[in-house]
Amino acid sequence: MKAGPEAVVLYARVSTKKQADAGNLDRQMERLRQYARENGFTIRAEFMDVASGLNQKRRGLLNVIKLAERGEFKNSSNTPTGWPGLAMHTSSGT
């Protein structure tokens, strides 16, 4: 299924379970949701990972890539990351 022109995928990551337990992952995702709302984007999907940025087998990120390959979100660089349709926020300590 192809998404409409304003669809985005949200992705957030923290490095440790301690950071996730402290609410950092939830705060990141809420910031992304707010950005999407304020800029008129429809959220196609949300993915999160608790994993090192060096770990290339991050399930959430792999799901984002699969959706991108299928063309299921906006193909534009008008996002915080500059990636097509991807609003991403990652943190290793906040």
Rank of each mutant, 00 (worst) to 15 (best):
M1E: 04
G4N: 08
P5V: 04
P5I: 04
E6C: 05
A7N: 03
A7Y: 05
A7R: 06
L10Y: 01
L10M: 02
Y11R: 00
A12R: 01
R13K: 01
V14E: 00
V14G: 00
V14A: 01
V14F: 00
S15C: 09
S15D: 14
T16C: 03
T16H: 06
K18A: 13
K18L: 13
Q19R: 11
Q19Y: 09
A20D: 12
D21Q: 12
D21Y: 08
D21T: 12
D21S: 07
A22V: 14
G23Y: 12
L25P: 02
D26C: 06
D26A: 10
D26F: 10
D26G: 06
Q28I: 00
Q28W: 00
M29D: 01
R31G: 03
R33L: 13
R33E: 14
Q34T: 10
Y35G: 09
Y35F: 09
A36I: 14
A36F: 08
E38A: 13
F41R: 05
F41H: 06
T42N: 09
T42F: 13
I43Y: 04
R44C: 13
R44W: 08
A45H: 12
F47A: 07
M48T: 15
D49M: 07
D49Q: 09
V50L: 12
S52D: 14
S52T: 15
S52V: 13
G53S: 11
G53Q: 14
L54K: 15
L54H: 15
N55V: 06
N55T: 08
Q56W: 12
Q56D: 14
K57L: 10
R59C: 11
G60K: 03
G60F: 02
G60M: 01
L61I: 07
L62H: 11
N63T: 04
N63R: 14
V64R: 00
V64W: 00
I65V: 09
L67R: 09
L67C: 02
E69F: 03
E69T: 08
R70A: 08
G71R: 02
E72S: 01
F73D: 01
K74N: 07
S76R: 01
S76N: 04
S77L: 07
N78D: 13
T81Q: 06
T81I: 06
G82M: 07
W83V: 05
P84D: 11
P84H: 10
A87C: 15
M88P: 03
M88K: 04
H89D: 14
H89L: 15
T90C: 09
T90F: 05
S91M: 06
S91T: 15
S91P: 07
S92H: 14
G93S: 15
G93I: 03
T94R: 15
T94S: 15
T94H: 15
